[in-house]
Design a protein around this nucleic acid. Sequence first.
DNA 1: GCAAGGTC
Length: 931
Amino acid sequence: MHLIIAEKNISANRIAGILAGNEKVRAVREGSVSTYSFDTKTVVGLKGHVVEVDFEPGYTNWRSETHPPRTLIDAGVIKKPTEKKIVSLIQKLAKKADLVTIATDYDTEGELIGKEAYELVRAVNPNVSINRARFSAITPTEIRRAFENLADLDFALAAAGEARQSIDLMWGASLTRFISIAARRGGANILSVGRVQSPTLAMIVEREREIESFVPETYWMLSLETEKEETAIEARHTHGRFDDHAEALAAKERTREPLTVTDIKEGQKKDRAPTPLDTTSFIVAASRLGFSAANAMRIAEDLYMNGYISYPRTDNTVYPKSLNLNGILKTLRGTAFDADVAWVEKNRRPVPTRGKKESTDHPPIHPAGAASREALAGDRWKIYELVVRRFLATLSPDATWATIKCLFDAAGEPYTATGGRLIDPGWRRVYPYSEAKENILPTFAVGERLAIREVTLEEKQTQPPPRYSQSKLIQVMEELGLGTKSTRHEVIGKLVSRRYVQGNPLRPTLVGRAVTDALDNHADTITEPEMTRTLEEHMQLIKERQRTRDDVIDESREMLHRVFDELEAHEEEIGEEIREQTAEEHTVGPCPVCGEDLRIRHTGASQFIGCTGYPECRFNVSLPGSMWGRAIRVDEVCPEHRLAHVRLIRKGAPPWNIGCPLCSHIKSNVEAFRMMPGMTDDLMRRLHARHIYTVYEIATMQPEELAAVAGVTESAAADLAAEAGEVLTILRRRTELRKFLRKIVPPRRGRSHAKIFAKLLDEGIGDIAALSRARPATLKKAGIGEKETEELLTRSREICHERTLKEAGVPAVSLKKYREAGITSPDAFCLLPIPYLASKTGLNPETVYKHVEKVCLHLGRPVPAKVSRKAFERGREELLAVPGIGEATLDRLMLAGIYDAETLTSADPAAASAITGIAAATIRAYIAHLK
DNA sequence: GCAAGGTC
């Protein structure tokens, strides 16, 4: 069998189709992986890298004494599978193969991915011959040519990729750990560092600094307004920007009629049709439609997977010869673009436009299939339409403008006006995304005199450079060689998820600035794009076999050690700097009680807002637990409390805007206040004025303090505190009920726990005890199913029973034994005979008596007579001596309170029979025997 | 728990 390994599934499919020619290809899905077979050949696709580099075992603990971050520099690197299913399928197929061909993309990463496959094959089949097919496009001619000219894997090319992997891992991981540990950040708050992300972040921080330090300069623009044929025309002074106000004023003073036309220059200008789309220009075009980089790529990948557009990750802006442009136009006929296609076919430019970058891996992004607006709703259609229209535009003629430049003289002061008119829209007909702004001037004649309506001197200010938009940043990253077409948008996503930057345009956060500062000061190698350039030069040398992989990595190790010399010498200082700079990130504003800073605090699963004046000031505001999202500060500020708004953010969930934490705190506690019978609006106002917002505070305050705050007598204050305590109990029980419901009733669409809970509350069911007494019909009305109702009732009764028994004073250890014996209700304690309970549980009857006594007293029921251990054991012997009574019969008799000879002889056989199920005659026989 | 690079 000849095994062919491609870079991805879709390539495998297409390669198989081409190589099979007229033969039928059998597609087989094994799990989630497909193979394509024909003749004796099987083609299988990888998923890019199917293995990943990591450190050898022993380096997982970040805070290890023996393996601090620096030791990662010299740690061994291993490859471990990330796509286990594909790895095992490749190895299964490799065992049977007598020839293996690596057919991954022809670039450095592709060669490395090929080498990974090579190693997987070698591990299970050491002798099979392995070769390499190199092609620059998956087209019939290219693929056939490649398979007729099979070569060997280029190990030097792959080694260049391996050097990049190792260097990225050791720099990224060691510096990430170092900085995170120094700043005492862990878990979701680590501070990451990397060859691509750190310079990108540094650019954003740098731009923000430029904006902050920008000193605007004032300048003046001089213009006049004239008119012809009742249209107003604006002409600007040819001096342009005046930096000197006096000079501008003088020019304005000199400007007077007559205004004479001195020259007219007419011309034509071509407006070139746009070039084919590579990933970056696609992201730029999509951003004009309002798509973020990541969203545009996500949609493009979806369209690609469904065959509507070509591969969206490409650096190519030139259509390859092999691309069938006519075929694509034909595909688009009959779609919503029918008229546009017809126009393009009729007016087509001789050669399609071409951009500056030409690469061979993939063609520019172009339509691959026909789609309808109905099939692709909303955003997907917008992106598809963009790709289609751009494709059409690249085949369309340039647009042509008629331009006119008119020069005027106003008593010696020169002015000019320019106009433009679109005479042939060309490509703009099919690509309406950039507006063509016309400015049509009336026809002038040289020497013509005009009136001056107004002369305007406008004062203006120079503007700071703009913040980076996502698309602009991706363009700059590309210019600097940072990241790849596939990763640039992900890098921005990473900076956002690390909370280094926010917004679009992108602004750095305090954390982002602090990390950039720390790295700039002590490890600037990693914040410069230079590192990537050097790495690429070294990789080039490896490819040319002028240097080895290990030699390059060793040099990088040496550099990183020097960086660590500097970092370790300043660890304390670096950590403190970062902590100091980022404290503000958690500060929401002044404490209403003492005026110190209020800060968001995270402690494990809970989070709250506390006062930095703690413990002197104990003011705090509770926040929903971190399961609802991590609390962060946002820019908006509450005008009333001067506190920053708070938002909970959680992966995969929309953010929960809490708003002003104090407003929200007050609002959520007002309802509880109103549950207190003695609460009035006036009293509530007084409490709020003294920053008392919770029932809990009232319940725990000293009466005299509360009396002073509320302006009532101490005894009234004590009543209030008692009421508050009762409200707390009610609320606690409600919470308990809520938790209980959540555990048993699974949430369903249209039936949230909140809804059910509200309905139960309406029915007066506010705690588990009330629930245990509820009628099934009531629960059904609240939207709870029959089975769930049954379970709710059973479980809630169990809980109530157990609670009563605990309250009565039955110890938990004994409760367990009763439960195991099936004795759970308090009634069972009061009604069942003590010997029976003792026998069932194996407990001492005297202990049982103590429990029964407690329960009966607790419930106000009569306490049964005590049975001593001696009497109990003697009774057993007496009864077991009676012929016909064994252990089983004894158990039954005990149920009827019969546990010794005396209780048996005095028993009423009929009654005892009814309880025990033993025939009355048999019981009479036992009694006769004893007598 | 860490990077960057493939791909989904």
